[in-house]
Structure formats: C-alpha cells, structure tokens
Amino acid sequence: MNFRRFTALVGSIVGVALIVMVAFLGIYAWPAIRFNGWHFLTQNNWNLGNLYANPITIRGQQILPAAHYGILFLIAGTLLSTAIAISLAVPVGVGAAIFLAEGTPPMLRSWVSLFVELLAAIPSVVYGLWGYVVVIPFLSHRVYPWMAKYLGFIPFLGGHTGSGYGLLTCGLVLTLMIVPLITATLRDALVSQGASRREAAVALGASRFETVWTVLLPEVRRVLIGSSILATGRALGETMAVLMISGNAVNYLPHNIYAPISTMASFIVSQLDSALTDPTGMAVRALAEVALALCLISILVNGLARVLLYYQDRHSAGV
C-alpha cells in the first residue's frame, strides 16, 4: 500500500468517528423518535413516568405509565441563553478587536491579545466554579435587584429576581466564553487588511476610527459573521458551566430574564442517571434523542459558519 493510501485510510478515522457517532445516536434513539413524534419539540413535559409501576404499551412501545418526553423548555433555554450570549458577545468582541488591531501599539498587541485569548482557553468547569462561587452572589445581591427596580418597565426585566441561578447569569458567563473567538479572528482579519485601502481613506481625510468603521469593518464582514456563528456553535454545546449556574429548571419556561433554565447539553448530564433507572429503556433513548437533536443543531450551525468562512477565503481579494 503506498503512502498516499495509507494516510487516506488512517486519516479517514476522523470522518468515520463522526459518522459512526451520529449514526449510532440515530439508531439508538429511533424508538424514542417514533414514540415521541413532533411533540418532542413542541411540548413542555419531560416526565420519566411512574418508575415503580408496571410498564404499559402505547403505540407499540413499552413505556412506564405517564411517561412523556417533551423538551420545549430545553430548546427555549438553549436558544435563549445562546441568543443573549451572542448579542452581547458581538459588540464587545468587535469593540475589543478594533481596539486591539488599531488602538494598541504593535509591541503590546500580541501580549494583550494573548491575555484576551486565554479567556477562551479556560475550561468550562472553571467558569462554572467562578460563576457559582462569586458571580451568582454578586449578581443576585447587587445587580439583579437594581436591574429589576430601575429597568423593570422593560418586559422580561422586571419581577422576581430569584436566587441568581438563571438565564441572564448563563448568558453573561457564556458571553465571556465566546467573545475571544470573535475577537481573535476579527483582529487577525483587521490586521491583515492591506495598506492601500487604509491609505486611501486617510487621504480622503478620515480619522483612524472612521477608517476602521467605514472601510475596514465592511471588508471583514464575512469573517465577523462566520466567527459569530462559530461562537454560537460553541455556546450551544456548553455543558459544565451552564450545569452549575443555570438553576436546572424542568418543565417550565423562564418567565423573566432571571428565571432558572435548562439547556440540552446540561440536561443530558443531569438526567442520564435518572433515565437509566427506567426499566423499559425508553428514557435513555429519549435522552439519546436530545443528544441527537443537539448534535444536529451544532452541525447545522457550524456547517453554516464554515461555508461562509470558506467563501470568504476564496472570495477575498486580499489587497
């Protein structure tokens, strides 16, 4: 076998691993998918059923009485926390990238950007620890009551501020975790913009900031969108930090921004052991369906980002 074929064979393990995983999840979750139908995505009722009663047969599947698997609250929690995270991360990320690319002297630039990028390297569980130990007390005692009092007229921002475990806390911590992804890519893109566009703008009398805002940023728009989508993908899959600070809500939607939530990823971790006590095995398959749904959403989001970034690679003139 020649070298080419050898590397192709061994290298395709990467692809095989992914395909095997998704296929396995699909096959394993199939009974649950058939049993749940579309209600899985539209209903707010996750119930393992009466674990101490005898199984009954519904629609050809053996399940426990009162068992029902509807994860609308998980989808809501996942999407809402990610939405908050990305809507905060993009402005902060763009601002930081601009300052890093244009506002810091080149000597300092790599050190300061290293400092910011280290934010992305910190493990999720350490973020969870920090959130659990200092951020939640700080937010619930100082920030949230203030917010509910003075900003309470805005819908979702008023009402009971709860214990600090909830949607906004998750959103804030997730923001920190994903901002470096946007900042790093955007900063690299801004720095690598050619001199001619810059010089043209300055020649027309634009200030430094105006150059960035009106000339450079539009050029790197696609990189911004691509990296934002990648960051979204990361936020969607975050597990440990969310598990420790989200409040682990089950079967209800958050009524305001401080209310507890659950995300699909954190739900799998917290419910797997309970699901394993279901003698019919349907609960575990329903969790596999959650994992499959999460996997597919991530694949979709990441695929989109790759297409956009790839298109930018091929399209950019790179003056």
């Binding site: 393992l48 009466n50 674990l51 101490y52 009971h160 089950v250 309970s274």
Partner: peptide, 17 residues
C-alpha cells in the same frame, strides 16, 4: 405526581432544584 426517585415536579414559581 405519585412517588419515585425522579418525579415530574409541578412547576412552582420560584422553586429551586
């Protein structure tokens, strides 16, 4: 609700897990 190691807790506003 009945009993079990896991039950479907009725959602109570402000309730914690």
């Amino acid at each position: 609700v009945s009993y079990g190691t896991t039950v479907s807790w009725p959602p109570v506003s402000g309730g914690l897990g």
